[in-house]
Design a protein around this nucleic acid. Sequence first.
DNA 1: ACATTGACGCCCA
DNA 2: GTGGGCGCCAATG
Length: 109
Amino acid sequence: MSASETPPDVVPNDIRLYTLLASIPAGKVVTYGQAANLIGLPRRARWVGQMLKQLPKDSRLPWHRVINAQGKISLPLTRGQTQAERLRAEGVMVTQEGKISLKQYGWCV
DNA sequence: ACATTGACGCCCA
DNA sequence: GTGGGCGCCAATG
């Protein structure tokens, strides 16, 4: 092993998730599963949810741009309402039920 | 070490 | 479109 080769895990997974979050354009959304896939962690959707949950309340990261595969907000009403408001503030149409059109707002890479 | 718990996802009725 | 059931996987108790 030469020292010049880059090990596959030099960047911790949580950092990669934060980086991805920061790269999601305002007005666009991704699903938990997509977020996991995009950082090379298939089948880790639940883990993504755990990470977002543990984010400090005053975090600057756009955690609100992550929704579930059904195109809906996965949060209990209180915080879910906050997420809906944040999204609407960026021009995303969110129904009363917390439904969002992935077709229209899904972030395509 | 075993059982439960989730900000999940896919399949099927 | 809507549930119900099951698989998945890290964190918790």
